[in-house]
């Protein structure tokens, strides 16, 4: 498939648009000098991802992504940023100085994965296979074949709930006790 054939499909224009948003905001998430901006850019990246999911016949997962991530997880992150009193303005000290090796490594990972994708799947077409996968099917799958993993995951969530409460409960540390006395 030539590039001109590819670009002549309108759906690919949408893909290019959404993909660029995802990539740009994803890149800014790991490079932004402002912590709050990084968190908010993750929202943009995830929203773009949800759009990609809609293109890929995954309506239910797309909306789950929006609800769970953008609705809850990001809020949790913002809480975390506020509570740990991370510097919310511009900050040059957010990244470590050694950037060359990480950059080389991530480029290596990208090259390897991209080469692998093209090598294995070449021009396999998406979307020729039919309708979106219905929520009904996912529900039946979750409560049928995957019912035991589903229950296990619910236990994991419960454990995470209890664990985070236990961890984050306010026990005064020696430092804080000392400070409290001084104040």
């Amino acid at each position: 498939m030539t590039f001109s054939a590819w670009i002549s499909e309108p759906i690919n224009w949408i893909f290019l648009l959404v993909g660029l948003v995802v990539l740009a905001s994803g890149f800014r998430v790991v490079t932004a000098k402002n912590v709050v901006h990084a968190a908010l850019l993750l929202v943009a990246a995830l929203a773009g991802t949800a759009g990609l999911f809609l293109m890929l016949a995954a309506e239910f997962v797309a909306w789950v992504l929006v609800l769970v991530y953008i609705g809850a997880v990001i809020v949790l992150f913002l809480f975390g940023i506020m509570i740990t009193r991370a510097p919310t303005g511009q900050d040059e000290g957010l990244d470590s100085e050694k950037k060359v090796v990480p950059a080389l490594l991530s480029v290596g990972v990208f090259v390897l994965m991209a080469w692998g994708s093209i090598d294995a799947f070449g021009t396999t077409l998406v979307g020729a296979t039919g309708d979106p996968i219905s929520t009904e099917l996912i529900g039946e799958s979750l409560l049928g074949r995957f019912v035991i993993p589903f229950e296990v995951v619910s236990f994991v969530l419960l454990a995470a709930l209890i664990g985070s409460i236990t961890l984050a409960r306010k026990d005064l540390t020696p430092i804080e006790e000392e400070e409290g006395r001084r104040v």
Binding site: I11, G19, V22, M113, A114, F121, T123, T124
Partner: peptide
């Protein structure tokens, strides 16, 4: 749309 474009993005 081809599969690889999504994989490369990922």
């Amino acid at each position: 749309m081809i599969l690889s474009q999504f994989l490369i993005l990922a």
